[in-house]
């Protein structure tokens, strides 16, 4: 990643904050002490802007932070008050999907779109290294790593990309107010569902055994629900309402309860999942939830010729009652 780009982002944001165009800016900052991780950060004054960062270790979907119970967007009382926000390609799809469903006020956002180089799965990288990372740098083709024991190494970044980035269709944001170009942007793939078809051509029993052996590790911590930008039911979520959930779901982590929870989660996302891969990223047990989300994306495309989050006008097919309404879209 070119450091000039970060400077460019900072300059732009600082200018916007100083001129009063935006009230605050939501971006990323480095986590101190742990190289290769980042966390969301809200810059409220021009001085805060220096803490901002953007690199391929910025993995969170910031649109999630604008919804209901996890609302970190500051209050914008004035009519013209805006919040600056940094979005990657996949985040922009979540933004458009939430706008289409009326859950996000696009008018209140000043969107800085960044061309995405793909994000690095740092956990997978750490697991393969003999010692811990002291410094890590991503130059667009390689990861330059210095280890705590003094060794240095160069690794191919393509091998450590998040799964969602391997078949990414939208590396350039679809909707933005200000675009930051990047020479290391990934080339979008056009055949993003090819591997889903390959996977689905396997025998059913094999697929079933594979996913259920992974799901058996689930502890029902609900990280996949809470990280999902399309899950905005908040305290109305059936899993959070003991009275409602009791007949449905006993809290113990038996396989049938785990499957029940994941069915509820992914059935409600069936027509709305944008494939941003946040659930897969958030899962502490590394369950390959991308198998489910990509199957949903494939279903949307083949059955309804619909892709969630590609425009802020199209309504999800299951929200429409009549058949004709889909055909028009």
């Amino acid at each position: 990643m070119n450091s000039n780009i970060l400077e460019y982002i900072k300059e732009t944001v600082k200018e916007a904050l100083e001129s009063g165009k935006i009230k605050a800016f939501l971006g990323y900052t480095d986590v101190e002490g742990i190289p290769g991780t980042s966390r969301p950060y809200l810059a409220e004054t021009p001085e805060d802007v220096d803490n901002l960062t953007f690199n391929s270790f910025c993995r969170q979907n910031l649109i999630r932070l604008g919804g209901g119970k996890t609302n970190y967007f500051p209050e914008l009382p004035g009519k013209k008050d805006k919040l600056g926000i940094m979005v990657k390609g996949c985040d922009s799809r979540s933004m458009l999907a939430n706008t289409a469903e009326g859950k996000l006020d696009r008018e209140k956002l000043w969107v800085v779109g960044v061309a995405c180089p793909g994000t690095i799965n740092i956990e997978r990288l750490r697991a393969t290294l003999p010692a811990e990372i002291k410094t890590i740098k991503d130059d667009g083709t390689n990861l330059q790593i210095e280890l705590v024991n003094g060794d240095g190494m160069k690794l191919d970044r393509e091998e450590y990309l998040d799964v969602r980035c391997l078949n990414c269709k939208v590396t350039k944001p679809l909707d933005y107010n200000f675009f930051i170009p990047n020479d290391t942007m990934r080339t979008p793939t056009t055949h993003n569902f090819e591997w889903v078809e390959q996977y689905q051509s396997k025998a059913f029993s094999e697929r079933s055994e594979f996913i259920q052996s992974h799901l058996a590790r689930c502890t029902l911590c609900f990280a996949c629900r809470d990280a999902c930008p399309a899950c905005y039911c908040n305290e109305n979520c059936i899993m959070d309402r003991p009275k409602l959930a009791e007949p449905f779901l006993h809290k113990s982590n038996e396989l049938k309860n785990i499957l029940m929870y994941h069915f509820i989660h992914y059935y409600h996302l069936a027509d709305r999942c944008t494939g941003c891969g946040e659930c897969t990223r958030a899962c502490p047990e590394n369950i390959p939830l991308n198998l489910i989300t990509d199957a949903l994306g494939h279903m949307q495309k083949t059955a309804w010729n619909f892709e969630a989050g590609m425009s802020d006008k199209s309504k999800p097919p299951l929200l429409l009652i009549k058949n004709e309404e889909i055909l028009e879209d």
Binding site: F204, Q212, L215, A270, I292, M299, I321, K322
Partner: peptide, 25 residues
């Protein structure tokens, strides 16, 4: 009831796909 049957058809179709992805026939 206003195309309740085709609505149901679409919903069951989505449910089947999710069930298949979760390893249920």
């Amino acid at each position: 009831n206003f195309d309740g049957n085709s609505f149901s058809k679409r919903r069951v179709f989505a449910g089947r796909k999710v069930a298949e992805a979760l390893g249920v026939h």
